[in-house]
Structure formats: structure tokens, C-alpha cells
């Protein structure tokens, strides 16, 4: 068994939780055989983050800490991961299916001449295969897939599906040498979102609004509840297409696919397009006036009622419970 190489993503000096999820899963899969888990961390000024990765199962941490890696570019990062893969010769390369991970995976896999199992919700190792379950047709079906004769198999793991598991262990940290590569697509500027806003694809709780919110200004009720819960805001396709909110918030087949612990659909009827993007959430709550709305079939809890009246009361109650502790 050749072990797993796990790509660690960091942003602004913090390791992303989604990467720790992937790393913990790699550690769980290799525990029975004792195969090694190697983490690879690429960035600038990131070396200080490396020692902590041993506490999530990386027995070895390779660090490419150079100015040229200060910003993510697929060409430079693919070269770095390729250099790590050449050292480790792993059975699989894991990374989280974040925006960066999904972009990097394709470039890396083609560079290695291998395929990628994308956005998986289950993954395991067989003697000669890496096998995974992944939602396809936007979650309307689940495919069990393997990587064929690809070696290594690149795997992107859906955020929020795999548990983070700290362990009492430490890893060795080594610098990673990466050959010079031409980087043609360069980042000129990064425009940050409003601070404090959570990404809908990665949030633990998502509160989404739909047509039943009746007017764009009423989305403030959705934002208030999201704020009280520490949640990200999401939206149905209908209100994105109507111009109430930016597409970055859209949940569904032509938007983000999310699987938070708690998903609240407010004034969303639950078109098949929307259900495809959120049905793998652990707990689904629907608030809708129409008792026949398809969203109730997917819901664990629901309120048949006007979201405009229910939301302020729910926000107040959540605040009260949180204050109680």
C-alpha cells in the first residue's frame, strides 16, 4: 500500500476545515494497513501551519513555502503537487472539493495522466482500486465509481461530509522542492467579499430564501436568521434569475451543491433543480405556505405558514436560545 497524499488548502494563514476533513478521512482509511498519509502544503508564509497537520494524521508534511505560491494558480500548484506525488508515489491524492480543489484537480490529474473521482461523499481503498460514491445528475443519483488503472487516483472530497478527527500524533515537516514552471494565467487582483460572510458551499448551516419571500427587501429576514444562527445565506434559482440576489448564492443544479448539517428553505417550493443541490443536507427544514410544496417531502421538519411571519419569530427564538446557552 502506497498511502495517500493529501493536499492542504489554506487561506489567509488558516488551514481550511475542508482540508482537515480530507486529511482525517485519509488517516481513517490508512489506519488498518498502516500506510502513510503525507500532507502537502503550498503557499507563502505557511510553514508555521505545517506542524499542526500531524495532529490530524499526517505522518509527513511537505511544505512548498515560496513567494511564487503566494496566490493560488492552477499551473504552479499543480507542479508543486506533482513534485510531492513523485516523492511519495501514493495510491491516491486527496483534496477537498472546494473551488480551488475542483479547479486544481483537473489540471493535476491530466498532468499525471490519471483520472479524478470528483466531489465524493464516500471513499474507500481496495487492494488495487480507489473506490468512491459520488452524487451525479446533481444528486438525483449516486454512482459508485473507481479510478480504473489510474495511479494515483485523484479524489476530491465534498466539504462537510467527512468528520475531522484530531489524534495524538505528530508528523515530520520537510521542505518540498518544486521545479520552475511557466505560470501563464496570473492573478492580477482579488476582490474580497464583505467580511464575515460565510461561503454557502462550506457552511455548516445554510438559510435559503425563495420566491415565497415575495420581494427582494424581505431577504433581510433570511439574512437576520442566518446571522442569528451563524449560517450562510443561500437562494433559489427563481430569485437569482429575478435579480434579487447574486448567483454566487444560488443553491441547486445550476448553482452550488451543498450538504450542511442544517438547511433551512424559506419560501422555496422545492423544484427538482433546487432539491438536487441540497438534498444531501443532514437535517432539512422547510417553511412554506403551500402544504403541497415538494420541499416538504424532503424535509425533516417543516412549518406550513407564511415565511414572512415565521422567520422573525424563529430568529427571535434562536437568539433567545443562544443567549440561554
Amino acid at each position: 500500500m502506497a498511502g495517500i497524499l493529501c493536499v492542504i488548502e489554506q487561506r489567509d494563514g488558516t488551514i481550511r476545515r475542508a482540508s482537515l476533513q480530507a486529511l482525517s478521512q485519509a488517516a481513517r482509511l490508512t489506519a488498518p494497513t498502516g500506510a502513510a498519509v503525507t500532507a502537502v502544503l503550498v503557499g507563502h508564509g505557511v510553514s508555521g501551519l505545517a506542524p499542526s497537520l500531524g495532529g490530524y494524521g499526517a505522518s509527513r508534511v511537505l511544505v512548498a513555502d515560496e513567494l511564487r505560491f503566494a496566490r493560488y494558480t492552477p499551473e504552479a500548484y499543480a507542479a508543486a503537487i506533482q513534485a510531492a506525488a513523485a516523492l511519495v508515489v501514493p495510491q491516491a491524492v486527496f483534496m477537498s472539493a472546494t473551488t480551488v480543489g475542483r479547479d486544481l484537480a483537473g489540471r493535476l490529474a491530466a498532468r499525471l495522466g490519471v483520472d479524478c473521482l470528483a466531489d465524493v461523499v464516500k471513499v474507500w481503498l481496495e487492494e488495487d482500486a480507489v473506490v468512491a460514491v459520488r452524487p451525479v445528475y446533481s444528486g438525483k443519483a449516486l454512482a459508485t465509481v473507481d479510478g480504473g488503472s489510474s495511479s494515483p487516483v485523484v479524489v476530491t472530497l465534498r466539504p462537510n461530509v467527512f468528520a475531522v478527527e484530531p489524534i495524538a500524533a505528530a508528523g515530520t515537516v520537510e521542505p518540498l522542492s518544486v521545479p520552475e514552471v511557466a505560470v501563464r494565467a496570473v492573478v492580477r487582483e482579488v476582490v474580497a467579499k464583505e467580511s464575515g460572510e460565510l461561503d454557502v458551499a462550506e457552511a455548516d448551516i445554510v438559510v435559503s430564501g425563495g420566491r415565497g419571500m415575495k420581494a427582494p427587501e424581505n431577504l433581510a429576514l433570511v439574512r437576520d436568521l442566518a446571522h442569528a444562527m451563524g449560517a450562510a445565506v443561500g437562494a433559489s434559482r427563481a430569485i437569482v434569475d429575478a435579480g434579487w440576489i447574486d448567483h454566487a448564492y444560488q443553491v441547486g443544479q445550476t448553482g452550488k451543491v451543498v450538504s450542511p448539517t442544517l438547511y433551512l428553505a424559506c419560501g422555496i417550493s422545492g423544484a427538482i433543480q433546487h432539491l438536487a443541490g441540497m438534498s444531501s443536507s443532514k437535517i432539512i427544514v422547510a417553511i412554506n405556505k403551500d402544504p403541497e410544496a415538494p420541499i416538504f417531502k424532503a424535509a425533516d421538519y417543516g412549518i406550513v405558514g407564511d415565511a414572512l411571519q415565521v422567520l422573525p419569530a424563529l430568529t427571535a427564538e434562536v437568539k433567545r436560545l443562544k443567549a440561554e446557552g
Binding site: 454512482a143 465509481v145 417531502k297 417543516g302
Partner: peptide, 29 residues
Amino acid sequence: AGCRWRSLALPPAKGGGMILNGETDPAAA
């Protein structure tokens, strides 16, 4: 050389959620 679909399944159906009536007293619901 690449990914093979071994099998395909439909996601487990949900149902039997607890649905509250919020028409008369939304705050209580």
C-alpha cells in the same frame, strides 16, 4: 485508464418529516 461507473443507485427517499401548522399562530410554530 480512467473512471468507471460500477453501479448507480437512487438516493434514499426521505419522508415522514415533522410538519407543523404555522398558519394560525406562526410565532408558536
